[in-house]
Design a protein around this nucleic acid. Structure first.
Lengths: 207, 207
DNA sequence: AAATTACTGTTATTTTCATAACAATGTTAT
DNA sequence: ATAACATTGTTATGAAAATAACAGTAATTT
């Protein structure tokens, strides 16, 4: 069970869960693989294969028990006590991420925000305290934060990442355009808006 | 030459170009594959393989001519007249995307923004005119916009996407958490913040 | 009771992407 | 002049991900 799942499967499990929670509020108790597939616009085989990997098995005539499946996915992708997240850089992007989470009940909670602009520090954004970036290491250790979102400009990103690694952070989501270099024990996911738009532009070209 | 390149290669070409532009401002004329690799924290083989795919060839002792390479990448991933982009939904995320582009000289230009909040429409954000979302189809056709970024809440995303497809848009970047369904001729790239953070959380778990 | 149907779970194949291996070649050192 | 070196371009291999193929099975139909 604790064997690591494929990257893409984990992504889809997260999406299955949210789709199922929504589906459940429609009152239905059971769901077929092709119905899940339709919710996500993927294939039924993909769904069944993912569920095989987490060892959940449905029933032949009814499909999957929605509540049960939601619970199983939770057991796989959540930790028992949840995980704490910090957002570094409270520009528009940082605030939008904090907005996504505020009010949502999830096992991930954003518990601290950091910025180097004194006008932003010591205030509360979307229910989260914003500290000065100099306090980052201290607060991350004290709170036991394990995940960080970097939404600072490129120039500052490298330094921020170094500090984060020092604090023992375990996962980083980097929205800055600067490629980061982290040790193998830190899971790094980069997302560069410009690159993504340029890629879309390439595939959107005619001919 | 017009054979479509692998998805990931296109992403890296975009990154090579930006790294090279930056490198060029340091005054150097030539660069080796392993130096490019270091800039992006990837391997030199990967770089050489990508350049092979676009048919650019360096010299044995000097490596690659930086200016030449930048130009070649431009010929591959840009269109001659550039492409126009619209941002749908001017929340924090929409504004942050517009911020990324303002001032950057690139062949992609954000030329219109849309929102359904009357307080936001008919104003200018980051130098871009914001229209009411009802005008979307009209403006997109008139301006010849080929790429759209969806940064509206999930509830509205499906309807927005339908309208976009109707206008003949060719590429969509969807930041809403709702999976979209578009015809094959529209290149769709989804990015779901919650899913990405949950994935990072999974791989950041101990054990 | 046999055949058909509509699903699931799993193995096999294909595709995409990354890595490794290595031949070719100009440059420098001996 | 020969050997050693550093670099490129390309082919071969490996890994990850998606898709296809199909066996198994309970319910339903004939």
């Amino acid at each position: 069970m604790n064997k690591k799942l494929p990257d893409k499967t984990v992504e889809r499990l997260s999406q299955y869960r949210r789709a199922l929670l929504n589906y459940l509020s429609g009152g239905k108790q059971h769901i077929f693989s092709h119905e899940i597939a339709n919710l996500l616009h993927i294939t039924a085989v993909q769904v069944r294969r993912d569920l095989m990997l987490i060892g959940y098995t449905g029933t032949l005539r009814q499909g999957y028990d929605v509540k049960e499946l939601i619970e199983i996915i939770g057991k796989i992708i959540d930790t028992r006590d949840g995980q704490k997240v910090a957002v570094i850089g409270i520009g528009n992007l940082g605030r939008s991420i904090m907005g996504y989470f505020s009010g949502k009940r999830t096992r991930l909670s954003i518990v601290a925000a950091f910025d180097n602009n004194p006008e932003k520090t010591d205030k509360i954004y979307a229910g989260v305290q914003c500290y000065h970036i100099d306090q980052m290491a201290e607060i991350i250790k004290k709170e036991g934060i394990s995940i960080a979102v970097i939404s600072v400009p490129g120039e500052e990103a490298v330094k921020v990442a170094e500090t984060l690694v020092m604090t023992g952070i375990r996962g980083i989501l980097n929205f800055s355009p600067k490629p980061l270099n982290v040790p193998a024990h830190v899971y790094l996911q980069e997302y560069d808006m410009i690159t993504m738009l340029e890629k879309i532009a390439y595939f959107a070209k005619k001919g």
